[in-house]
Design a protein around this nucleic acid. Structure first.
Length: 352
DNA sequence: AACTCGGGGCT
DNA sequence: AGCCCAGAGTT
């Protein structure tokens, strides 16, 4: 197929979408009016680098507790961070609250892609997705699904991430003026259920006849990606300091890994096990036999666990370290990121 | 342009 | 045990 002729992609894709669209909680019901911009925005932020199945229970919890920009803008920071715990990429939660407060102050979510792009936590993808899905504007929406579908449709040989400008230009050529939001969501549904990363179901694909990747029998080889470096191994220690039936928790600094989240005190994360370095107080620390292993995006972490107990009347202010005492029996409600929740399960079992 | 930033689903 | 995912912000 000549590359200078726009391919007829949108029409067959939208027909397929009308018959096979996923029923997702942030989508308007078929035949209904436009979806709620608050729900579109919230879902798009939650869905950044996060799969639909993971997001659904968080979306339900958030919309039940905070059903509007105004409600979310009035939330306490700690409550929102705790509600986000486990979903990952915690900068999203801080930006979510900042964005809700800005929208509440302005009165409404802006409707143009350029204005949306200026909001906290709204980048190029999310601005385009909201403009198209919530406000019906034509926007070129490129997420990981679209990248996969488009690189297969056009058999793009260039590796990611360098191929992104070309992929965006190609997506522009197939994006329709009408129903741009449905087109974007149709591309995502196609990428999620048919044009999958592994073992694509090409025989069910409505775009099979326009697909260079299928024609050459090599659809699954796209997108080409740059080679990845191996993840380094790091080591750390978490400190389980108890006072009666309570354990000391701290809040991590806003910047950096797991920023702003409630957590157990830790020492440094180093190339070699740091032992008891940076213990919150001098105490009779005992190292447990058990370790906690956790994988982050760019390194693997092995954590040693140290436990100690102090007198029941001790406060939570240790000079530079300010913490709070949390009932061990209710540790699940503290909103700990997963690596700390793993440690708390081990420690609560042995040192409750 | 390269790096940082989670965690669970799926194969 | 890897690879992948409705990316954004910082440097």
């Amino acid at each position: 197929m000549p590359d200078n002729v726009p391919r007829a992609i949108a029409a067959p894709l939208l027909s397929w979408y009308d018959a096979h669209a996923r029923d997702l909680p942030w989508r308007a019901r078929p035949g209904a009016n436009a979806p709620d911009p608050y729900r579109v925005w919230l879902s798009e932020v939650m869905l950044q680098q996060t799969q639909v199945a993971t997001v659904i229970p968080y979306f339900a919890k958030f919309t039940a507790r905070w059903p509007s920009f105004e409600a979310l803008a009035a939330a306490e920071d700690a409550d929102l961070m705790a509600a986000w715990a486990g979903l990952g990429y915690y900068a999203r939660a801080r930006n979510l609250l900042a964005c809700a407060r800005e929208v509440a102050r302005r009165g409404a979510l802006p409707e143009t892609e350029a204005e949306l792009l200026g909001l906290p936590g709204v980048g190029g993808y999310t601005a385009a997705a909201i403009a198209a899905i919530a406000f019906g504007q034509r926007a070129v929406v490129v997420d990981a699904n679209v990248e996969r579908v488009v690189t297969r449709l056009f058999a793009v040989p260039d590796p990611l991430p360098g191929a992104r400008p070309k992929i965006r230009a190609l997506t522009d050529t197939i994006t329709p003026d009408a129903r741009a939001g449905d087109f974007a969501q149709a591309m995502m549904d196609l990428g999620s259920g048919i044009c999958t990363a592994r073992a694509p179901r090409c025989l069910l694909c409505p775009l099979r006849d326009q697909c260079d990747g299928f024609a050459t029998g090599a659809a699954e080889t796209f997108p080409v990606k740059a080679a990845k470096l191996p993840k380094p191994q790091r080591y750390g220690t978490m400190f389980w300091l108890t006072r009666g039936g309570e354990v000391l928790l701290v809040r991590r600094p806003d910047k950096g890994l797991l920023g702003g989240m409630r957590a157990l005190p830790t020492g440094p994360w180093s190339d070699t096990p740091p032992g008891l370095a940076d213990a919150p107080i001098a105490a009779d620390w005992r190292l447990l036999d058990d370790q906690v292993r956790h994988g982050f995006t760019h390194f693997n972490l092995d954590v040693a666990l140290a436990a100690a107990t102090i007198a029941a009347q001790t406060g939570a202010d240790f000079g530079t370290l300010k913490g709070e005492w949390w009932p061990i029996a209710e540790i699940e409600s503290a909103g700990l990121p997963t690596v700390f929740a793993k440690a708390a399960r081990v420690l609560g079992r042995k040192h409750a």
